[in-house]
Structure formats: C-alpha cells, structure tokens
C-alpha cells in the first residue's frame, strides 16, 4: 500500500474541501482498502466519514417511506425492523450480501459506490484494459463474467451491487451532497441515474461530481398492491457474486399487473432496467408463461461476448424466477 494522508472530519461540510483533487472517501473500507492494497487505486488522502453522525440511521415514516443513512451497515440494514416489515425483499437481499464479516463493516453508501469486480481491473490492467495495440483485453481475453447488455464498449464490466437493482426496482432515490455545490448542496436523483456507463478510462461508473458524497437513500412507501422479489443466480451458496440477478416490483390491479419495474444486476456495467420486460407484464396476470415472456423480452437485446453466452440463459432464469416469486408462485429453482 502506498503512503496516504488520513483525515477524519465530524461534519459533512468539511468533506468536499478535504477530498480535494486526489482524495477518497473511507466508510466501511471493505472495497477501498482492498483496492489500495492491490495497488489498483492510490488516493493521496483518505477522508474518513465514519464520525459524521448525520450520515447514520434508518427511519421510516408511512407517508415518506424509508430513509437510509449512507453509513448504515449492511447488517444494520438487514436487521432493521421497518426494513423487514415494509420491504422484506430488501432485507432478504441484504442478508445475501458477501459474508457476515463484510456485512458488519460495509455500508449502504459504499455498496452503491463499490468498484467493479472485473478481473482485468482488479489485476491492475485498467477498467477498460487495452492490449498493446489498443484492443480491449476483455474482448480478446477471458470475458466469462463480463456484460451481456449495455456492452457496446469500451466498458464490459458488470455493476457489482446486489442491493442497487432491488432499490431501483422499488423506486429509490439517492441524495448526494457537496459543500461546494450551489444552494443546500444536496442533489437528489433517481438511484438509477447515479450509475453511468463510462466511455473512457478517466471516467467513473458513478455520476458523482468532484467533492460529492452519498448522504442517504430514500425508498418510497410500499403501496398495498406492491409485489416485489429478487433472485440471484450464484454458483456457490456460500459468499459469492451473482452470475446474474433480477429484481422486480409489480403494482397489481387485482390479479393483473398495473405497472412493473424489472431491474437486472451483474449483466451490464450499470444496474439494467428492462422496460421491455416490464411492458411484457403490464395487463397480464402472472403465470410461468407470462414470466417467461418477460424474461425473453429482458434479454432480447443481449449480445454475448466470446465466453459469456451462458449468462443470457442465467439472466432469463433470474427474471422469470423473480417475477414468479414476487407473485408468490413457485419458481421451481434453487437446487
């Protein structure tokens, strides 16, 4: 690990100034410290935000929904009584994140900002690793875990968060703050808008302006007619990254779907919203056939690379099973 400065402010107004040009925010540190030890990133200064109390806490109000402070750990989030009661799909997804040790340290804010697991990136070859003659290493090399959607390039990695697809399906918003920004300094945007597909090595996969930090995530109150579920296809039952994930939120009108959100994880450089899959569900009642039709719609635009065709099959299975599970029907999976 290279030398770095360390600062530990107690209020969020100081963060932007302290971050400067080459600083990084340190929260749980489960991702950042590993990246630093592997010499993938080398921030000159770490700004520890764990002493900023306003970033903590989870609260629920019937009218406003759920507010999750950025410093909430995944374990606190998974165990929160309101989360379990009003958003069981979120609690379940949080319980599947990584390992108990990591859940005790990792934060919600960090979960949104974690860097991709692409092995070219993690082995220090760059997020858009290139060969000596300028070709994509991912395309020329081993891309078994790479994107099947949103993979026009040069980004081929997959978005690593398993919570983001669920939150996006539920209509969550993210609040960002920078003392340098105009007005209150707070910027609120739909969570999905905070993820972007970078076009060059210098860009990030997050829409965070210099000096900006995640302060909280808000989830609208669930309606009476909401049915939601998420499904992860994982090779191991123990700690593992999903090979594909689908999160769905269905607004029901009797037995028919009034509106739907279908969000795929681990298949694209961003959490992948599939309006095609949602459209395939609207007006239909949920059955294996309608779920399968939506699953097919979700991957209709998918383009496999040389080693990852199987991920299309997995994404389909995930979408179908998430939909059936949301509707309380047996998906027949989970060997």
């Amino acid at each position: 690990m290279r030398p770095f400065e360390y600062v530990s402010p107690t209020n969020k107004e100081q963060v932007a100034i302290l971050l400067g040009e080459r600083g990084s925010i340190l929260a749980g540190g489960t991702d950042l410290l590993a990246l630093m030890k592997d010499d993938v990133v080398a921030p000159e200064r770490l700004v520890n935000i764990k002493h900023i109390d306003s970033l903590r806490g989870i609260s629920y109000q019937p009218g406003n929904g759920l507010r999750i402070g950025a410093l909430t750990t995944i374990a606190e989030f998974a165990e929160d009584a309101n989360v379990r009661r009003y958003y069981p799909v979120l609690a379940d997804a949080a319980n599947e994140v990584a390992s108990p040790q990591i859940r005790n340290l990792a934060t919600i804010g960090g979960n949104m900002c974690q860097r991709p697991r692409c092995w070219y990136f993690r082995n220090g070859m760059g997020l858009m690793a290139k060969t000596a003659d300028g070709k994509s290493m991912v395309l020329a090399g081993d891309n078994r875990y790479a994107a099947i959607l949103g993979n026009a390039g040069p980004a081929y990695f997959v978005s690593p968060s398993t919570l983001a697809p669920v939150l996006i399906a539920l209509g969550a918003k993210i609040r960002l703050y920078s003392a340098k920004a105009a007005g209150s300094g707070v910027r609120e945007l739909p969570l999905e808008k905070s993820f972007v597909i970078p076009k060059s090595e210098n860009e990030l996969e997050h829409d965070l302006k210099p000096g900006e930090m995640v302060i909280e995530i808000v989830v609208p109150p669930p309606s009476q007619d909401l049915k939601a579920a998420s499904y992860e296809v994982r090779q191991r039952a123990a700690f593992d990254w999903p090979l594909a994930q689908a999160s769905v939120a269905l607004e029901m009108d009797g037995s028919a779907v009034k509106s739907a959100r279908v969000v795929l994880g681990h298949v694209a450089p961003i959490p992948w919203i599939s309006p095609e899959a949602a459209q395939a569900l609207v007006g239909k009642s949920i059955s294996p056939d309608t779920a399968m039709a939506a699953a097919n719609a979700a991957v209709a635009q998918a383009k496999p690379l040389s080693h990852n065709k199987y991920k299309i099959t997995l994404a389909k299975a995930a979408v179908k099973r998430a939909i059936l599970s949301a509707a309380g029907q047996s998906a027949g999976g989970a060997a």
Partner: peptide, 10 residues
C-alpha cells in the same frame, strides 16, 4: 441436484 435452467450443481 442440478438446476437445468441455471446449470448450478449442488
């Protein structure tokens, strides 16, 4: 047990 829709073996 093998999940024939995902190829996962348990």
């Amino acid at each position: 047990s093998v999940d024939t829709e995902t190829g996962i073996v348990r």
